[in-house]
Simulated scan of single mutants.
Amino acid sequence: MALVTTGLVVLDCAEPEKLAEFYRELLEAEHVDASANRVEIRAADGFRLALRRDMNATAPSWPRPENSLQAHLEFVAEDLDGVERKIVSLGGRPTESGDPNGPTEERGYADPAGHSFTVRRGVPTAPKQG
């Protein structure tokens, strides 16, 4: 029997309730647990994400080096335009979009607290450089 039975990503932020709602809506997830300083959600595919209160949290500054990436989430979708509309409607913002004249395979975003994440179509065709 495994000593560790599960794992999840935890993001620090000033307002975990608000950020949990952003990801709950984006992933069509359900609340699993909540306390005064932490909210956890679980998506239908089993992906778990927790948001932990840190009143001194600062948003990552990637790609600038002064505050680094800290964490990076990646999601997979077929309708990148539809996902982008939903992200923006929930308070997220695009940070990278590739060539505006054609479909892109990967797009970068920031959630309302400034954490970066990527939405990509299918399996990446080549490793990311840099």
Score class of each variant (00 low, 15 high):
residue 81 D to L: 10
residue 118 T to V: 14
residue 67 N to H: 07
residue 116 S to W: 10
residue 4 V to F: 05
residue 88 V to F: 04
residue 98 G to K: 07
residue 96 E to K: 04
residue 98 G to L: 06
residue 104 T to P: 09
residue 24 R to K: 15
residue 68 S to G: 11
residue 2 A to G: 13
residue 109 Y to P: 13
residue 26 L to T: 09
residue 108 G to Q: 07
residue 78 E to A: 12
residue 100 P to T: 10
residue 39 V to Y: 01
residue 26 L to E: 09
residue 59 A to M: 09
residue 118 T to E: 07
residue 123 V to C: 09
residue 30 E to T: 13
residue 47 F to R: 00
residue 74 E to V: 13
residue 32 V to L: 12
residue 77 A to G: 14
residue 107 R to D: 15
residue 51 L to K: 00
residue 118 T to K: 04
residue 1 M to P: 07
residue 33 D to T: 08
residue 96 E to W: 12
residue 56 N to S: 15
residue 65 P to I: 09
residue 91 G to E: 09
residue 105 E to T: 15
residue 113 A to G: 07
residue 14 A to Q: 12
residue 40 E to F: 02
residue 67 N to W: 04
residue 105 E to N: 15
residue 121 R to S: 12
residue 93 R to F: 03
residue 13 C to D: 03
residue 113 A to S: 15
residue 115 H to F: 09
residue 102 G to K: 10
residue 6 T to N: 14
residue 60 P to K: 02
residue 107 R to I: 15
residue 66 E to R: 05
residue 69 L to R: 02
residue 16 P to L: 04
residue 22 F to M: 12
residue 18 K to M: 07
residue 9 V to K: 00
residue 102 G to Q: 12
residue 121 R to F: 11
residue 69 L to E: 10
residue 3 L to P: 02
residue 42 R to Y: 03
residue 39 V to M: 02
residue 10 V to R: 02
residue 11 L to D: 07
residue 27 L to I: 02
residue 12 D to M: 05
residue 57 A to Y: 05
residue 28 E to R: 02
residue 91 G to C: 08
residue 71 A to R: 00
residue 107 R to N: 14
residue 92 G to L: 08
residue 10 V to F: 01
residue 71 A to P: 01
residue 38 R to H: 06
residue 30 E to I: 05
residue 70 Q to T: 12
residue 82 G to L: 10
residue 128 K to T: 14
residue 84 E to K: 13
residue 19 L to P: 01
residue 120 R to M: 15
residue 45 D to P: 07
residue 76 V to W: 01
residue 11 L to F: 01
residue 17 E to H: 08
residue 57 A to F: 04
residue 41 I to P: 11
residue 24 R to N: 06
residue 22 F to H: 14
residue 38 R to K: 03
residue 18 K to D: 14
residue 84 E to Q: 15
residue 42 R to H: 05
residue 24 R to Q: 15
residue 72 H to D: 08
residue 52 R to E: 13
residue 79 D to N: 13
residue 107 R to F: 02
residue 31 H to G: 12
residue 125 T to C: 08
residue 4 V to N: 05
residue 78 E to T: 11
residue 122 G to H: 04
residue 100 P to G: 10
residue 25 E to Q: 13
residue 117 F to N: 10
residue 128 K to S: 14
residue 1 M to Y: 00
residue 34 A to C: 06
residue 64 R to N: 10
residue 77 A to D: 09
residue 34 A to W: 03
residue 7 G to I: 05
residue 34 A to K: 07
residue 115 H to G: 13
residue 128 K to M: 14
residue 129 Q to R: 05
residue 94 P to N: 03
residue 26 L to Q: 06
residue 117 F to G: 09
residue 101 N to M: 08
residue 123 V to P: 03
residue 72 H to F: 08
residue 57 A to T: 06
residue 123 V to R: 04
residue 125 T to A: 13
residue 47 F to D: 06
residue 63 P to W: 03
residue 67 N to R: 10
residue 76 V to G: 04
residue 124 P to C: 12
residue 36 A to F: 00
residue 66 E to F: 04
